[in-house]
């Protein structure tokens, strides 16, 4: 087994990490969607490379499925939502871009520390996969709480999902095809439902800002 193209894997992982930093620093919705799609493509490529020795129908479905969904269907749905909602405006974050970048560097350090401490054995130990995965997960979490557009929250959720998927990648030897199909199905329906809701939000408020979505409270009005 083992990873033969170690340096190539590292190259892809570094690209992924740079993508996260770009996400933290960028302000345009379109570049958000593009970076998220590129990350989906990177993750599918990594699926193939990490499981080169054991190419089976399952791996092929995983690679093709995640590439088609994450780099094809989801970006298409999201771009459509952006067009329908007429938003070209830049994103107004709760945390500013330079602050976000500084925070990004901090969580990158945290990810390095965390993955060095974890007792990971086998193929994953040889590479930066856990580090990159943790960083992507943390970036997704941070973006969900620090950005205000409904559509950005969906993209952040996808970034988070990419990270989790990458983390599981070296380990999921046993999970069966059916389950991965189920995960894909859930994701697809999830993004579609969120897309529909985004459409309704834009129609209801003429804006996609989730700040409008804060009237439900417990005390007073």
């Amino acid at each position: 087994m083992g990873i033969r193209n170690g340096s190539f894997v590292d190259f892809l992982l570094i690209a992924l990490i740079l993508g996260n930093l770009l996400l933290l620093g960028s302000s345009r919705l379109m570049s958000y969607i593009r970076i998220c799609a590129a990350q989906g493509l990177l993750v599918s490529a990594l699926t193939f490379i990490l499981h080169r020795g054991e190419v089976s129908a399952r791996i092929v479905v995983l690679v093709v499925g995640s590439a088609v969904l994450k780099a094809g269907l989801f970006p298409w749905l999201l771009i459509r939502a952006v067009r329908v909602a007429y938003i070209k405006k830049e994103i107004e974050p709760i945390v500013g871009y330079s602050a976000s970048l500084i925070f990004g560097v901090l969580i990158l350090a945290l990810s390095l520390w965390l993955s060095a401490r974890l007792p990971i054995h086998g193929k994953a130990a040889a590479s930066f996969v856990p580090t990159a995965a943790f960083f992507t997960i943390f970036t997704g979490c941070f973006l969900i709480v620090s950005r205000t557009k409904a559509i950005t929250q969906v993209i952040s959720y996808l970034v988070l999902e990419n990270g989790i998927y990458l983390f599981g990648l070296p380990f999921v030897g046993e999970a069966a095809l059916l389950i991965e199909l189920g995960v894909f199905l859930d994701l697809t329906v999830g993004v579609a439902v969120m897309g529909i809701i985004i459409y309704h939000i834009s129609r209801e408020f003429d804006s996609l800002d989730v700040k409008h979505l804060s009237t439900l409270k417990d005390w007073g009005s």
Binding site: I144, A150, Q153, Y157, G190, V193, M194, I197, H200, I201, E204, F205, V210, H212, L213, S214, T215, L216
Partner: peptide
Amino acid sequence: HRGPHALEATWKYLV
């Protein structure tokens, strides 16, 4: 029920 409140609740629920 539609409307802004239902929308907000659904969005929070989903996210």
